[in-house]
Amino acid sequence: MGTFLKHHRWITPLALLAPGLLWLLVFYLYPALQMFMASFWSGSLATGFTFSLSNWTNYPDAVSTYAPIYLRSVLYAGAATVTTFLIAYPLAYTIAFKGGRFKNLLLFLVVAPFFTSFLLRTVSWKIILSDSGPVLGPLKAIGILPQQFHVLASPMAVIAGITYAFLPFMTLPIYVALEKVDFRLVEAAKDLYAGPWRPGGAIVGAIVGGVLMAVLGFVFNTSPLAFAIVGAVVGAVLFHFRVSESFVRVTFPLSISGVFAGGLLTFIPAIGDYVNAELLGGPNTSMIGNVIQAKFLTENDYPSASALSFVMMFGVLIVVAIYAKILGTEELSAAAARA
């Protein structure tokens, strides 16, 4: 046996891959093919489905009908990915560099929500954010918010829900990347005159702070401009004094791989997510996941549902390809250093 394996070295990797390949074959490739066939069906559950290549029109039909919802899905998933990143990066950075002996505890806290079911957590958010719930209720009672103010059924609620749900998926890869950054490289950068990030820090801080606060202004239906100005000033001051050039030129470029992985792990599931839109959103915030779910399970319109799924799959592939082109190469970090 030993000599047999020695002479047929290709067997070992194949044997190791076999279970995974088999799994993919049975539970992914076969259903995918099945679904691809279904996207060329016509008819209904009552009359029976017939396959015909002439039914390729299912695709243009699906796209033209649901184009706005596709767009919305990309926007929501994109916005959620950005906010997840903005929350997760400082979190991962703090755990990696300032966590000290609490590192493991803090990491545990990041994944702790997973101990409760995803559905339950989203339902809890529905309760927390409800029109007279524990947050909005008291604020309305003392008159800070108008009576008709609501968060649920708004885009903000859906995006916030997705952000919350995928935060650990963004935090952990970034943490792993940051953890690997050799602190001596940061010292070397400081030795080579990397001080406070001037003037970039103030500019980037103003943009980040301004945009975030403007969004918040929109949500609360008050003046976005006033919010944006306050956010820009605070962001500029904060970034100017707290973000060093060694971070921008060394630490951040070296953690890009984590940001890339975290972004994928957040964006891809987020774009197909329907639970957050279902529970926290309203009729005007449904995402493509909701449509597909309804077509499959409620309307039994398998051909449309299949076509919609495939369009989404290809859409995601294209978005990810563009994203990988931007973030996934070493070009970005090198460009940052050249600047």
Partner: peptide, 11 residues
């Protein structure tokens, strides 16, 4: 530095 601390992402 002792272990050179060259920036690995830069030429």
């Amino acid at each position: 530095f002792q272990n050179y601390a060259l920036f690995p992402h830069l030429t």
